[in-house]
Design a protein around this nucleic acid. Structure first.
Lengths: 339, 339
DNA sequence: AATCCGAACGCAAACGCTTGCGCAACCACA
DNA sequence: TGTGGTTGCGCAAGCGTTTGCGTTCGGATT
């Protein structure tokens, strides 16, 4: 058997209660005794059993993080940053990867997280029913993705404004026929695609450009989807001279499609993305950057703050800064060839 | 208060023991009674407290996964795949992101994982001391990265062979002056860089090419590092006509450096990577693919197998297939210009 | 009709910690 | 010397499960 609290109690000649208090820095233990206990614990290689301690105290010192796809850059980056904050504060992280509908359903019906976590960071938007399930856990909740639900602390960005700056850039370059590669809101319940689309429409309206539904293609927020969407747009009788992709991944897919069609970027077609993916700089993609890791950190911090001050009330939404990054995939429209 | 096992016991008019047995499918409960209990549990929305159950049973139904950088594509992908296997089997995943030395040290000294997990999947190579700490947990251990330690089930690939196929491809195209962008083994204790380097040297030897130390540059397995390394190589009096990057990320950095130098790929310089990063297809990078997700899945499966059959002994190392993928960044050397 | 047996269930003791409360011992002050 | 207030520690009752063992009971066996 491994060493338990009574072992170090006996080794020090005190009671288990005193050991518990000493090791967790609670008052009621003399400094001298504390030192002896700490030494004995280190000596024996004692670590408190989390199961036992959380059973007794009700606190788990664990944060649940639920993610749609850990493998995707955005979520991986947020998770990375958040985990660092949590573990630095002494919290463990329980990860739930809910990509598939089955996994998701399993999670929300069984709710394996119940009584296992002190707080939850959700990187997916729960539907109303799922949100209720999470709230029933009765722990602080936070999210970093658009489409907040009541009860969630939200850290996000101005998606609409970001989209506006991207599209306005294209307009300023002289483009009038501007396509958009977007993604559906529905399966994920997020509002990001809607907000970014709104930004796109805003700028068109401002600029007196009639929006053309044919110029909107669904890229599903993946590289392949972006490639398909761009291919569709290129098949139009009047293809766009510039494209705003709602994510860098889709933008990269678009770049690939353009290469396949032997079209030059930005000479023949301009492309602007959104997110500032880690590889966007590599391909020289013009985009609007959002501080992904910072959002994860901030959300984690807010969660911890709520744990420290349970009655301080939920923090107000935080909006992180974004910024437009000009790189090499945008230029004025090529007027010499197409009409 | 939330509903506990005694609540459903009372609701059904039986003892807590029977509820426990019924819900976990243990024998000693009539089918009729089991059905009633299950119904009552579902009705009340009962979920067993993991803390209590693992305290009582000693099994945690939790797997610890330790990762150097969750945000990086390789690790994120392995984690993603492994988590799916674990959660499908009813296990939770405790994530430890040990990128920084402090986090790493904190983890291995405090070993917060002790008594909290039934098994550990390590995506980083522990040094001998750390490996001993993990073994002291007395649970099955597995890893998917080169540089195995005794006691670990390992799932990996033939790094040396993979590197050989990449470099041989360059040789076959006619290249004689072949650079390599590698990474240090030391901070991470992994053998991947060493193995891939050996493959590189093997082919050079086979082909009667004298290896030139000046042609090896350190890219630290990051995009920026790859860019720096390529820049170094280009500064040589006699730059290479082709480059083997030990990872796709470094290869992409190299591509970026080449673009900056207004050199065309593959006309002026050929580049081949390793890993088949999700975006490699987008940039048309020739590379050698390894089944990253599959390795995560396989490692997870082996771990679960060991939990089911504790005395079956540790599984033998598994080597997953790799394959060379020809895309658009390699071509015969351009003989017309440089000498 | 006496016996045996297995199935179905309850009892109660863990599991390893936390924490409210009680109780000495000690200090300072009057 | 007595009173009141700290300080430092032990007692013991939980926390919500699991599980070995004991009990009950209906039915099969002689």
């Amino acid at each position: 058997m491994t060493v338990s609290i009574t072992d170090v109690a006996e080794a020090t000649g005190v009671s288990a209660s005193t050991v518990s208090r000493a090791l967790r820095g609670r008052p009621g233990v003399s400094e001298e005794m504390r030192a002896r206990i700490v030494a004995a614990a280190a000596d024996l290689g004692y670590t408190a059993s989390r199961s036992a301690s959380s059973l007794a105290s009700g606190r788990t010192h664990t944060i649940g993080v639920v993610v749609p796809y850990v493998g995707r850059w955005f979520f991986g980056t947020v998770l990375d940053a958040a985990e660092k904050v949590f573990s630095a504060a002494g919290y463990d992280v329980l990860l739930y990867n809910l990509g598939s509908p089955e996994a998701r359903k399993r999670f929300f019906t069984k709710l394996p997280i119940r009584k296992r976590v002190d707080a939850v960071l959700s990187l997916l938007i729960p539907d109303p029913e799922e949100a209720a399930a999470l709230r029933s856990l009765d722990v602080p909740l936070a999210t970093t993705v658009g489409g907040a639900r009541p009860g969630f602390t939200v850290v996000g960005i101005d998606d609409r404004g970001g989209a506006e700056s991207a599209v306005r850039h294209l307009v300023n370059l002289g483009h009038r026929r501007i396509g958009m590669i977007s993604g559906a809101s529905e399966p994920l319940h997020w509002t990001t695609p809607l907000d970014r689309r709104q930004g796109y429409l805003d700028v068109l309206a401002d600029s007196g450009i009639e929006p053309d539904p044919a110029l909107e293609a669904d890229g599903g927020y993946t590289v392949e989807g972006g490639e398909r969407a761009m291919t569709e747009l290129l098949a139009l009788r009047q293809p766009p001279t510039a494209v705003f992709a709602q994510s860098d991944e889709m933008a990269m897919g678009a770049l690939r499609a353009l290469r396949r069609h032997r079209l030059r970027v930005p000479e023949d077609v301009s492309v602007v993305g959104f997110d500032d993916h880690e590889l966007s700089e590599v391909v020289g993609l013009t985009t609007v950057a959002q501080p992904v890791a910072a959002q994860g950190r901030e959300a984690a911090r807010l969660l911890l703050a709520q744990l420290d001050e349970p009655d301080a009330g939920p923090p107000r939404p935080v909006e992180m800064p974004i910024r437009f990054i000009l790189r090499e995939t945008t230029a004025p429209p090529y007027t010499g060839r197409r009409r």
